[in-house]
Amino acid sequence: MVVETITDGGILYGLLAVGAGLATGLAGIGAGVGEQGIGAAVVGVVAEEPGFLGKGLFLMLLPETLIIFGLAVSLILMFAWTPFA
């Protein structure tokens, strides 16, 4: 039977992968939600005053760090933390 071949380690590894995926994915949604409002506002301002582009970009890119946090957690889960060593 197939069921017998699934080990505890395998389940743990699977859960680890799911967790890593959730960490990056949910963080991505968060960053997206944050950026949508700022992005719309920046486009509006830049249409009025093109000189604001640099600062607008700055503001728009601020929430982007969120996804990097999620990614950092994923990387640690997938690469740095080895419960099977």
């Binding site: 760090t65 990097i68 946090f69 990387l75």
Partner: peptide, 12 residues
């Protein structure tokens, strides 16, 4: 702290 972690994007 987030400033430093932000540099992980270079890898990511």
């Amino acid at each position: 702290v987030s400033n430093l972690i932000s540099y992980l994007r270079l890898l990511a």
